[in-house]
Computed example of a mutant assay.
Amino acid sequence: MGSDDIFKKRREERKKRNYGYMQPKANSYLIVTEGEKTEPLYLRGIIQQIEDKMGGNVDVVEIPLIDIRGEGCSTCKLIEKTNDLVRKAKIIYQNVWVVFDKDDFDDFDKAIDEGKDKDYKVAWSNQSFEYWAYLHFHYSDAALHRDQWCKKLDEIFKQYNLGIGGYKKNYSEIYGMLNLNDGVTTAIKNAKRRMAGFDTSKMKPSEYDPGTTMHVLVSELKKYLDE
């Protein structure tokens, strides 16, 4: 065996010693969001409840949209960023979620496929997170522009005197506001009803408008509150 082969063998043995012991940390989550406002604020609301109840080990990493939108490839760039975070993490997360909206990006379906190829779980919304927020109050299968969903939420927030002067994206208590009258349970029920018509063998997420898989992520987190 040559000196180069011996060096390579020793290097591999060192790697095994240094990293071989690492196992996925139970009940750990890395949740990477496209937005810097509504999505992380909403998720932090439920995560705070989990931590208050059981000291849950959940990390939410927010990726400001403004940092990556200039690339013209926001959703796929988010997958790349998630790859970096996973690679540099000091633990192996048991669950890695990526959260993003379709908005006007053409790489929406590609990003979902890339995430799944990496064994990430993807919570997507078409067109936007505001559709998921609306489902906390009412069911709808109307294909509306994201601005229209915001207007509908604005009307609801005014109706129930939520927030200050209507719906805004930066409410720190957005989770509690949407959970009025057990709204989270309502949203999960409404999302399941809507997504029952989504046939993955015949259509792409970008073609299913409106649609969302946020209920899968929220249901997974909510189980810690329901135990």
Rank of each mutant, 00 (worst) to 15 (best):
C76Y: 00
A123P: 07
L30E: 01
K102H: 01
V58L: 06
E12T: 05
A89D: 04
N83G: 02
N179D: 15
V218S: 07
L85W: 00
S172M: 06
G166C: 02
S74R: 06
R87D: 10
A187H: 08
D113R: 10
I6W: 06
M1A: 08
S28M: 02
R11A: 15
R69E: 15
R14W: 05
Y120V: 01
M1N: 06
R11F: 10
K204F: 10
A133C: 15
T185S: 14
L30M: 01
G166M: 09
D109C: 03
Q49D: 09
V218A: 08
T212E: 10
D147P: 00
E130V: 05
R87N: 10
K204N: 12
D209N: 15
D209E: 12
N126A: 02
P24M: 03
C150F: 11
I50C: 11
V99W: 00
A191K: 02
G45P: 07
D209H: 14
G72Y: 11
G20N: 08
P24S: 03
D182I: 04
Y160K: 14
V61S: 04
N181Q: 13
M22W: 04
E13K: 06
Y21T: 06
T213H: 03
E130H: 05
G55V: 11
K118Q: 12
R193H: 05
P210Y: 10
F129T: 12
Y167A: 09
Y29F: 15
I50S: 01
D113W: 01
D67G: 03
D199I: 07
K189V: 02
Y167G: 09
K9I: 14
D103W: 03
D104E: 09
E13L: 07
F157A: 08
K53H: 07
V96R: 06
V96A: 01
K192C: 09
I164Q: 14
D104T: 13
E114Y: 08
V61E: 12
S140A: 08
L221Q: 06
T185F: 10
L41I: 01
E36S: 13
G20F: 11
K222D: 14
T185L: 12
A26H: 06
M22I: 12
I91R: 03
C73I: 03
E71P: 00
G115E: 02
G56N: 03
K202E: 07
L144H: 07
L217K: 14
W149I: 00
